[in-house]
């Protein structure tokens, strides 16, 4: 069920798991959109020639996935801040999962904090971050 107001948020609750589209097609389109052409985001073989395990999902696309996840959970949420650490590459065409947990709830000003993690199928954390989100007071 989508969250509408701060009163519906429970401290410690998990956000619904989000499966981002980390396909090479999406990573490649995104990289070209933001002007980051080059094999590391568009071509597995070319990325391997650069010493990478495969083509990567651009870091800022991972950040965008985290925000989209929050909006799926609470459609009217306003992102006040998000800080993201790129711990290891997110390899395109590998399945990844985003999890989130509410770590602070302020019912007076309507703000919540959410810890977010992008993990691969081995359960390894690739990206993590924290978002401060404004929700309607209701």
């Amino acid at each position: 069920m989508a969250i509408s107001t701060i009163q519906e948020v429970v401290f410690g609750e998990d956000l619904p798991t989000f499966i981002p589209d980390t396909s090479l097609a999406i990573a490649s389109q995104f990289a070209k959109l933001v002007g980051w052409g080059g094999p590391r985001f568009t071509d597995h073989e070319g990325a391997r020639k650069e010493g990478l395990p495969g083509a990567m999902v651009p870091g800022i696309l991972n950040q965008g996935y985290l925000v989209a996840m929050i909006h799926h959970w609470a459609p009217d949420a306003e992102i006040k801040a998000i800080d993201t650490v790129f711990r290891a590459p997110v390899i395109a065409d590998e399945k990844h999962t985003i999890s989130g947990v509410v770590t602070d709830v302020n019912e007076e000003d309507g703000q919540v904090e959410i810890d977010l993690t992008v993990s691969n199928e081995k359960g390894e954390t690739r990206v993590f971050g924290t978002a401060t989100v404004q929700l309607p007071l209701g």
């Binding site: 989000f18 995104f30 959109l33 965008g64 925000v67 989209a68 996840m69 459609p75 992102i79």
Partner: peptide, 27 residues
Amino acid sequence: IEYARLCGETAARFLDPAHPDFQAPPT
């Protein structure tokens, strides 16, 4: 709009130029 779509946003305020609060996605 394309940025929002590729990130997986579905909210109209990021995707529909006719939305009264049309805006770029936050990131």
